[in-house]
Simulated assay, not measured.
Amino acid sequence: MTVASELMGVLLDLSALLSVVGMGLLALASALVLTFVYRWYSRQKPPVNVAILVGLAAVSLWLNTDLALKQVITAGNLDNLETNAIITIASFVVGGFGASLGHQIGDDLAVRFFAISGVKDLNREMSQLVQSVGRTITVTLPDDINDIEGYDPVDEATKEKLAGISLVFPRRLTVAELKTRLVSRLKEDYSVGHVDIELDENGSITFLAIGSRAAGLGPTLPPGKAAVAIRADPAHGASAGDLVQLWKPGPEPELVTAAELRATVDDVVTVVVDADDAERLSAEDTYRLITMPSEPLPDREFASLLRVADETMGAVTVDESSALVGTELGNLDTTVVAVKPQSGGVTAIPARGHVLEAGDTIYAIVRPDELRRLEAVTGPSKQQSTMN
């Protein structure tokens, strides 16, 4: 009997097959438990090699125990040594694959049930129990989540998913560090663009508002401009932001307009032109593009930077009863880019010594939480509001 035929005979034997499958399930369960506990405790995915090692260790422990029992029962007389060797090798091979699968399943379960993505109800109680023994900090999001003014709202499905969940963080974090990690978690795990959150000294959430990041060309188009898709043959090195001229080919080429190149896909080009010139472009014609020397576009560069930043442009008006009336801009811990007095006109990049008056409109580059505080100090004073 050849080795190959003996191997087939062993694998076709039902008891041997069940033994090998059982070893694979044992390795899978061991790696799953290890990954689950490791992910919950450290909020990191363990290396797959460690999970496989633990799974194979469980298989080895079981096989060694089984062999020792057989030796005791049979007084050291073991039959079918070749069969046992084949089953052992097959068990280790299947156990390796099972441990790798258990590593993936365990990590997915930990992400779902232990607040790596957020947990509710029973899992929240378990997290609070862990917090009571001093291992982690549990932060529960409020059921009512607000929208950030000036940003696109987040869809209701995401709000419902976030409402009331508990998130677990390592202990010994300051309030500022906890706030930073909480904002990062919401952005990474739920694709939230902007987060406005306030925490008290105990790390509990007192205010939460979220917003999505503006997408598409619209938010970056200056007033009076329009984006149009045309068929054209841009230069090989042309890229977004290049200034181009659109020419209609023919016996006598005709200059149609100047434009800014935004995107190219094969022979379809998206350009930004004056709104009046957009009507002159036809989807049936194929244009020739000539790239022009670069020129500074402050508005375009500003819009591009602002689009990817955490800050946004905010405008607030100083109320006549605000505590800021008669104070200097230098007292504001905010980046003010312009001030528009009630009398008219706009002062760009005002001096820090500029004195604020009632009716002044302040244009500032701020984060959502800073904008909310700025609106609070420029609005009616608390004393005046109470009297009214």
Rank of each mutant, 00 (worst) to 15 (best):
D152C: 04
T220I: 12
L69T: 15
I86Y: 11
E295I: 12
A209V: 12
D13T: 11
N331G: 13
S282R: 09
R307I: 04
L332K: 02
R43T: 03
D242M: 07
S385N: 07
L178E: 12
R307V: 00
V154S: 08
D147P: 11
D196E: 15
I86W: 05
F97I: 11
D274W: 01
F113I: 04
K70L: 12
A16G: 12
L56K: 00
R112H: 05
A278N: 03
A27H: 03
G237F: 15
L28W: 14
D155Y: 08
R135C: 02
D13F: 15
V273K: 04
V48W: 11
V325P: 07
L32C: 15
T74C: 07
A259C: 10
K248G: 02
L32P: 01
F113S: 04
T327C: 07
D242C: 09
E370I: 00
V54H: 06
V130F: 14
N123H: 13
T74E: 08
A376D: 12
T74L: 14
V48S: 08
L101K: 01
A29K: 00
A85S: 13
E328Y: 02
K179N: 09
M1F: 04
T206N: 13
R373K: 10
E260Q: 13
G24Q: 10
T312F: 13
L297Y: 03
E6W: 02
P222V: 10
V48M: 13
G344W: 05
D189Y: 05
K120N: 01
T35M: 02
G203K: 01
L7N: 01
L26F: 05
A115P: 12
T327R: 15
Q44D: 06
P253I: 01
L374I: 09
A338K: 04
D310T: 12
E6C: 02
V3F: 14
A27R: 06
A263K: 11
V273P: 08
